[in-house]
């Protein structure tokens, strides 16, 4: 596979074209904005958390294909998870995409997030993938 196909996999391009859960939630219990000062991109994240469970989530904002698809895929994962489960997923994911390229990754608990492993070859773009997740953590911690 060419490097470009490794990073821009079809799933990523699809989520970029048709982002899931794109929009706003007027009755959100948690909200945060995440900025990437390097490029001026930002994401607005809206969450409805009930009894420690994420029942709904939406995002809006401006971003590259990598950050937009990361946000989109993140929202599909977050729905129905408890806060602790969600944090654990990000932890594992973060460890995986910031690890050395030749390191063997246990892809078992990464699930759909596996498509982002190609980003390890593009260190400057790791921030694009993690921005939505950092914004999620920010929203949770700010409002708790």
């Amino acid at each position: 596979m060419e490097s470009s196909d490794l990073l821009y996999q079809e799933i990523i391009l699809d989520h970029n074209r048709n982002p899931r859960n794109f929009g706003e939630l007027s009755n959100a219990t948690h909200k945060a904005v995440g900025h990437n000062p390097l490029c001026g991109d930002y994401i607005e994240l809206y969450l409805i958390v009930k009894d420690n469970v994420i029942v709904d989530v939406k995002f809006s904002g401006v971003g590259c294909a990598i950050s937009k698809s990361s946000a989109s895929i993140m929202t599909t994962i977050l729905k129905g998870k408890t806060i602790e489960e969600a944090k654990q997923i990000f932890n594992d994911f973060h460890t995986a995409i910031t690890s050395e390229i030749d390191k063997k990754i246990d892809t078992q608990n990464l699930g759909k997030l596996e498509v982002f492993l190609g980003v390890r070859e593009f260190p400057v773009r790791v921030k694009c993938v993690t921005l939505p997740w950092h914004t999620f953590i920010d929203a949770i911690e700010k409002n708790s």
């Binding site: 821009y8 490029c39 001026g40 590259c64 990598i66 593009f122």
Partner: peptide, 21 residues
């Protein structure tokens, strides 16, 4: 297509351009 995606993809073709503000 976001400029950063253009920048990364051109880079893979050996083309160095600037993207951003």
């Amino acid at each position: 297509i976001h400029p950063h995606d253009i920048g990364t993809l051109l880079d893979l073709d050996g083309i160095a351009i600037r993207t951003g503000h």
